[in-house]
């Protein structure tokens, strides 16, 4: 169960090899989470994290999960609840940037970004949400992005996938009203992780640990939306209202 200050006992991580996911699950175990299931495309690559979490006192295990294998998502949800019992938090952290996916890409590359970030996320979340409704409680933490606030010309496919995921998550949150299950949408800016390695940092860039702290904070406050860093809320609200002709000319 979640407690009054947002500490939780059991966590399912989808995309456990993500740097942000690793930092967050460490923070949650530091705040007394004791049962963790790490779902990753290559579960072997999550073994080290599982071991680290065991040293911190959690009972941690790994399981195979591919965001694009939607036919297996119902079974994943079943297996996760089987292993963890109640799931207090599911952290939806997988994603692909597709840094150079755009106008020049072939259709399969375009589809891969959308299938992973949007289709795969929606498909994986719903069977988990349904079981959370049955257990009468739970928090779904979804890694969206500031990129979804307004798709930029430089990565409009990724931006569109996050816009879709963000809208899906908010709508799901409303559909879950009064079920005891809530959705927290996390919108980070530029985070230094392997996803962004080699890219030029955007202003207000941050770290996985800072994002993790913001998520822990959001759980305590029962926030529906978490901006990290916080200042991005203001920045993005300005950007969102910028006239299209101007926005298009920004060097972003």
């Amino acid at each position: 169960m979640r407690d009054a200050l947002g500490s939780v006992q059991s966590v399912l991580v989808l995309g456990a090899t993500s740097d942000i996911a690793a930092a967050t699950v460490r923070a949650l175990v530091g705040r007394r989470a004791r049962r963790v299931l790490l779902a990753a495309r290559n579960p072997d690559q999550a073994l080290a994290l599982a071991e680290e979490l065991r040293v911190l006192g959690a009972d941690a295990d790994v399981i195979a999960f591919d965001a694009r294998a939607t036919a297996a998502h119902e079974e994943l949800a079943r297996a996760a609840f089987d292993r963890l019992g109640d799931i207090d938090v599911v952290l939806v952290a997988f994603g692909t940037l597709g840094a150079d996916v755009g106008l020049a890409s072939d259709p399969a590359a375009i589809a891969a970004v959308l299938e992973t970030n949007f289709v795969g996320a929606a498909s994986a979340i719903v069977p988990i949400a349904r079981r959370m409704v049955d257990q009468g409680h739970g928090t779904i933490v979804v890694l969206s992005s500031v990129a979804g606030e307004r798709a930029r010309k430089s990565n409009f496919v990724y931006g569109a996938s996050k816009a879709g995921l963000d809208a899906f998550s908010q709508g799901l949150g409303d559909a879950l009203a009064a079920t005891g299950v809530t959705v927290t949408v996390v919108r980070p800016g530029f985070v230094h992780t392997k996803m962004t390695a080699g890219l030029r940092p955007a202003p207000l860039s941050t770290t996985p640990e800072a994002v993790a702290a913001a998520i822990v904070d959001g759980l305590a406050r029962r926030s529906e939306i978490v901006w990290t860093p916080r200042l991005l809320r203001v920045v993005m609200s300005l950007l969102r209202h910028l006239p299209r002709a101007l926005f298009r000319r920004l060097p972003v």
């Binding site: 169960m1 979640r2 009054a4 009468g136 409680h137 009064a178 079920t179």
Partner: peptide, 16 residues
């Protein structure tokens, strides 16, 4: 009837 409940503190609502 399913209802969202909390204690007096209003923290950690769950449905029963």
């Amino acid at each position: 009837a399913g209802r969202l409940l909390t204690g007096w503190g209003g923290t950690a609502p769950t449905r029963a």
